[in-house]
């Protein structure tokens, strides 16, 4: 019996028990010249393995995993894949949102509009703003800031989710002694087109910036 037989079996047992074993930890324990063989075996097992019967706690943990939540936010939102794509690209570029906003504002030549730009970016990352409204100039500027391809961003914007995302929750201060409760209010809609400024046009006017 080789080390990799035991390692594979340990992985399989942990998988079947719903323990979420980390492949890379098992690979690190294998002799270096057998690592690729173990990787191949684990991959083959994962191809056919049953889904573990996760405990309710583990399933809840998995459902709250950031990557899973981002996928769902994209599916239910109006911003294409951007609720997942933008934060991910931001993390890769090691940029905070305010840094992206500053760089974006500079590239677009809309200095002084940081607050509005930040709000629009927040709405795109949370799926509440239609990505179809975002101009090509913004897409290209974002791509430059994030070190991504404009084509990837545009394709992400074009993804059509199921549009079930609701209004963001707003919390009212409770009266003393009263039970706190959540009340959902529809957030104010975008300004009418006749009142758009340049920032509105960039984020609401579509790829070719309607109203320009």
């Amino acid at each position: 019996m080789t080390d990799i037989d035991r390692l594979l079996s340990e992985f399989v047992d942990a998988w079947n028990a719903g323990e979420r074993p980390r492949v890379e930890e098992y690979l690190a324990r294998a002799p270096e010249d057998r690592r690729d063989e173990l990787a191949d075996l684990i991959e083959a097992f994962l191809d056919v393995a049953p889904t573990p019967d996760y405990s309710p706690e583990t399933l809840e943990e998995l459902m709250r995993h950031p990557a899973v939540l981002a996928s769902v936010e994209a599916l239910e939102g109006r911003s294409g894949l951007w609720p997942s794509l933008l934060p991910r690209l931001r993390r890769r570029a090691r940029l905070r949102r305010d840094q992206v906003v500053s760089a974006l504002v500079e590239r677009l030549g809309i200095e002084g509009s940081e607050e509005k730009t930040a709000r629009y970016l927040h709405e795109l990352e949370t799926g509440t703003l239609a990505a179809a409204g975002v101009s090509r100039r913004v897409i290209e500027a974002l791509a430059g800031v994030l070190g991504a391809s404009a084509a990837e961003l545009e394709r992400g914007a074009d993804f059509r989710g199921l549009g079930t995302g609701g209004a963001e929750p707003v919390y009212l201060r409770a009266e003393p002694g009263a039970e706190p409760r959540e009340v959902r209010l529809d957030r104010p809609g975008p300004p009418p087109e006749s009142e758009w400024d340049e920032v509105d046009r960039l984020f609401l006017g579509g790829r070719e910036e309607a109203g320009r």
């Binding site: 990787a39 684990i42 994962l46 889904t51 399933l59 998995l62 899973v68 996928s71």
Partner: peptide, 22 residues
């Protein structure tokens, strides 16, 4: 959406394993 959410949550570890073993 809810069905997708559960499916992807259950599939997450398998996907992660495939990526790590690639």
């Amino acid at each position: 959406v809810r069905s997708w959410h559960i499916l992807i949550a259950r599939a997450h570890e398998r996907i992660r394993g495939w990526v790590a073993a690639f």
